[in-house]
Design a binder for these strands. Structure first.
Lengths: 182, 182
DNA sequence: CCTGAAGACTTCACCTCTAAACTTCGAAGC
DNA sequence: GCTTCGAAGTTTAGAGGTGAAGTCTTCAGG
């Protein structure tokens, strides 16, 4: 019974050793970076998800609020632009806005100057929840980086930015359909 | 008409400037690291998704194949363990295995020594597709890191590992329900 | 004007995941 | 040996996504 305790979730190094065993021409240094990136992101999303759940919303809804706030002053965007920004289909955006309107986080109106367009705006409540989520997120993020010195944080940010530039050049389009946060 | 061209997807630095404008007590250095991590991961998933699509499968299916190969020699696991490993509910695992059996990537048999248990194994075809996906993935990953020296790669891996240790301590459980790769 | 084409959102059909109820087998107690 | 409990998978209902088709508005030509 202690023989197969379940699935002890292998450590990063164990996982890389297993990859090398099964696939010889693997560069362990590259794999370590890539696997750590994926695992980190999953854990971060879990952490954010718990925080947004405390506020009675989902990460998906928080994404919309972030996009609206980042858009700047009138804090309004069309569903199409929101969809591009978040990497969703317009159809998904329609449904997500439906829910958020029902929950009082955003408003939806027709643009009177061009009645084919729709304008999504953030409500007071949406803004307040965005702020509270940001507060919680920054606390978590500071904890996450607490073992790194200022110099290390700088170097880490700089290296990640270089990687990002590389992929963004290779994927000039906004980047497709997969789930994630900003 | 050039007034609202769509949504030019803000650069990382523009995004961080916008955050500082809207939320003063934000540490830009921390935010840069965190935002770069999220964006990088999204782009990586897009890249992997294109590669697995070329092989006629999804990232989700590739995840299952990876788990089976990493499990080592008999290359078999129960659905429950697979679900824990991938952060899915058992129900989702049942359906995913259904599809993969139909596509000939894995097999499903009952464990004769304990007939409540089920054993999922990888087929020849599954193994071949896993291998091909790994080949494509390593090419992409090498390109991704091409701007970093060996020394930089080492430091990057080491710093990411430190961050990972920090979150894994804070989330001792396997880590919840959110989508992602390993 | 009126018409055809393009753009922006919505609707529809289907797919995948979650949460919770259900089924079945194995193990422990009497 | 029968009963009860617990563990492992599956089934079901509902949330949220995609892609394709549909609707409505605007705009450029005839």
């Amino acid at each position: 019974m202690a023989d197969t305790p379940g699935a002890p979730e292998p450590s990063l190094d164990e996982q890389i050793a297993a990859y090398q065993r099964e696939f010889q021409d693997l560069d362990p240094q590259v794999e370590k970076v890539v696997s750590a990136l994926s695992r980190l992101n999953r854990r971060m999303n879990v952490a954010y998800g718990r925080q947004t759940a405390e506020l009675g919303m989902s990460n998906a809804e928080w994404e919309v609020l972030k996009a609206l706030v980042l858009a700047g002053d009138p804090y309004r965007m069309g569903p199409g632009d929101l969809a591009k920004r978040l990497g969703l289909t317009p159809a998904a955006m329609t449904h997500r806005i439906d829910r958020m309107v029902a929950e009082g986080l955003v408003t939806r109106e027709r643009d009177e100057s061009n009645r084919v367009r729709v304008i999504v705006g953030i409500t007071e409540e949406g803004r307040a929840k965005w702020l509270e989520a940001m507060r919680m997120a920054t606390v978590f993020e500071e904890e996450l980086l607490q073992d790194l010195s200022g110099e290390e944080r700088h170097r880490l940010g700089e290296m990640l930015t270089r990687l990002l530039r590389r992929v963004e050049e290779a994927q000039p389009d906004a980047g497709g359909r997969l789930s994630d946060l900003d």
